[in-house]
């Protein structure tokens, strides 16, 4: 069985996000060089891991002028904050969960979950395109759940 975006889901602080266009994550291992004098080939030892990712959510409203929030709004507000005189702006930590719902009964859906900080929020309004938010994040520590 192969998977596609049809099975993909995303949860923001435990709530399923709507209108998610894509999500991705990557786990990178930094390597420490242990090559010594006399070696002809490099040797390494594991260093620290860095887990990052990104997602794109469409920005929408249920009805014209209805206001309210949507998943994109919920997410970007973890980083986008108006400045207040004398108060340092502080980004909020958010729990993101990415699922591939394969209908698994015993193990549940394949997923990863982690506490993250948003590092970039990018929004562009252009003619002929739906307003959306491109969000990048970095995991704070390791993934708390990995079922892959």
């Amino acid at each position: 069985m192969f998977y596609s975006g049809t099975q993909g889901k995303m949860f923001i602080d435990g709530v399923r996000a709507a209108k998610v266009k894509s999500w991705s994550f990557s786990s990178n291992l930094g390597l420490l060089d242990t090559t010594t004098l006399g070696d002809t080939d490099g040797t390494v030892t594991p260093g620290t891991r860095t887990n990052t990712g990104s997602c794109t959510l469409l920005y929408y409203a249920d009805a014209d002028g209805s206001g309210g929030s949507n998943s994109a709004s919920t997410l970007i507000n973890k980083l986008l904050k108006a400045g207040v005189e004398g108060v340092a702006p502080e980004a909020d930590e958010v729990v993101l969960r990415f699922e591939i719902d394969d209908g698994g009964v015993i193990t549940g859906p394949r997923h990863v979950q982690a506490k993250v900080y948003l590092t970039t929020v990018s929004m562009t309004c252009a003619v002929g395109e739906i307003f959306s938010a491109d969000v990048s994040f970095q995991v704070n520590g390791a993934f708390s759940e990995v079922v892959m």
Binding site: D33, T34, L37
Partner: peptide, 12 residues
């Protein structure tokens, strides 16, 4: 205990 027999990374 003798000086450790470990290959250095750099020697000057």
């Amino acid at each position: 205990m003798p000086y450790p027999a470990i290959r250095p990374t750099e020697r000057q």
